Simulated scan of single mutants.
Amino acid sequence: MYDDQPMCDLLVLVGPDLHDDVARCAAAAGYRVLSVPAGDCRREWLTARAVVADPAAVAELGRIRPPRRDAFVLVATGDPGGDIWRSAIDLGATDAVTLPADENDLVRALTGFRVPRRHPAGVVAVIGAHGGAGASTLAAAVALTGVGLGSPTLLLDLDDVAPGADLLLGIEQRPGLRWQGLSLDGGAVSGAALHRALPRAENDLVVLTSERMPAAGISPEAVTAVIDAGRTNGDLVVLDVPRSDSAVVRAAMSSADLVVLVSTPTVGGCAAARRVHARLIGNTVAVELVVRGPSPGGLRPARVAAAIGVPLLAAYRPDPRLPMRLESGPLRVRPRSPLGRAAWAVHSRVTGGRAA
């Protein structure tokens, strides 16, 4: 076991007959075991360092069709059969191991998968507690900060009745795919293809937003597929999430590693943030607060966070000249500005302080 390296997560999708054998191999290779149902493992499928699945799990995965991934091993007590092996290959498997006879082969494969990934990947959802909180501006600032730090970044604007992230970034006239033109091939989409098809704001920042006058809304299936594609491509995925109790918002929340709730330091802002937290976000994902001040009543950011019941990630003062600048040009974020420091704090939190 690699005692000088941190534990990695191994997603284990096997029945009771194989669980002890796989757990023993996982311990020998230095993994922490994640055991969830195969039909409800999308987050772990995308984030775990490696995956081990038995034939029954592969059959279930073939029905829900997650995106292909690497570091995936099919395990069985005997011949899994041609159909199962083909399904496993479609999901990205490169090896099959018979247990318990070939435990050493599984340990060897899992050990090889522990080579660190080249790019950090993370999904952060930014949502305002109320209108005018500054969530869309912060989301765009986080995306710009990401590319400035070398992270390939995908900014997804999920509000199809808002002005649009493309307008905020000054790329509304650039050609490229919008949500309403996205066609899913079997429920999946390629991250590399998205980077080629979407409007580009910066060298490694692409933006997916709605048409100016959309004839249709955004589907949660499309949101899930695009988030999955960005994650597996190694992108930082930034979600600008509307305040609505909808399937699209639920899909965004269930896919995020971190939800950033943005509020102003007012009594009304606190009340709104508590409602958004309880009704739209819930307790299944990490939530942290960004406070955009100052407070007209002297309410400090730490007290706002305590009143809402979430940790304080950052607090910053608004730039009174920003609205005027946005009327004549795209958003620009200076790293040492209050907005820039808040965006850096969010980026650092979701990526663990790493840059690509």
Rank of each mutant, 00 (worst) to 15 (best):
N104G: 14
A343S: 04
A141F: 00
T266E: 07
R317N: 10
P116F: 01
A53D: 12
H195I: 05
H347F: 15
A229T: 11
G132T: 08
N233L: 10
S246I: 10
V223N: 01
N233I: 03
V267C: 04
D157H: 11
S255D: 10
M213D: 14
S151W: 12
L61D: 06
T94C: 07
A133Y: 05
A26R: 07
H130I: 06
E172T: 12
V237Y: 01
I227P: 02
V304E: 04
A165S: 14
T47L: 11
S190K: 01
A76V: 01
A48I: 02
L289E: 03
R334S: 11
L91D: 04
A57F: 06
L331R: 07
S87R: 15
A315V: 02
L261V: 02
D245W: 09
S219M: 11
R341G: 02
A271Q: 10
P338L: 08
A307V: 02
Y2I: 11
R334T: 12
A76S: 14
A96D: 08
I218R: 04
H19R: 15
T77P: 09
I281C: 09
R178I: 02
N233Q: 14
V290N: 05
A222S: 15
G170W: 14
D166L: 09
R108H: 13
E327W: 11
P330V: 05
A96T: 10
T351Y: 09
R325Y: 10
G170A: 06
D20C: 03
L198P: 04
Y316Q: 02
A88N: 01
V189E: 05
L194T: 02
N203E: 13
A271C: 06
P294L: 06
L46Y: 00
D102E: 15
V262H: 05
N104K: 12
A273E: 04
R174A: 15
S210K: 05
N283M: 06
T98F: 05
V52W: 03
R68T: 09
N233K: 12
T264Y: 00
V238F: 05
Q173Y: 12
L239Y: 01
R114A: 09
L156I: 04
H19S: 15
V189R: 07
G298L: 09
E221G: 08
R279E: 15
L339V: 00
S183F: 08
T224W: 00
T264F: 00
D245M: 07
T145L: 05
L184E: 06
S190T: 01
M1G: 11
W344I: 08
T224Q: 14
C8D: 15
S348K: 13
P318T: 14
P120Q: 10
S136G: 06
R300L: 13
W85D: 14
S35I: 11
Q180L: 07
P6H: 06
V147K: 02
D83L: 13
G134A: 09
G191N: 08
V22C: 12
V237A: 02
L313F: 00
A96E: 13
V223R: 00
S244K: 12
G353K: 03
D185T: 14
L74D: 02
V58M: 06
Y316L: 09
M1A: 10
R68P: 14
V58R: 04
P175W: 00
G81T: 13
R279M: 13
V14A: 12
G82P: 13
P16K: 09
G15E: 08
G269T: 00
R317P: 02
L156M: 12
C270R: 08
D17Q: 12
G329Y: 07
A192G: 14
L339R: 05
V58P: 00
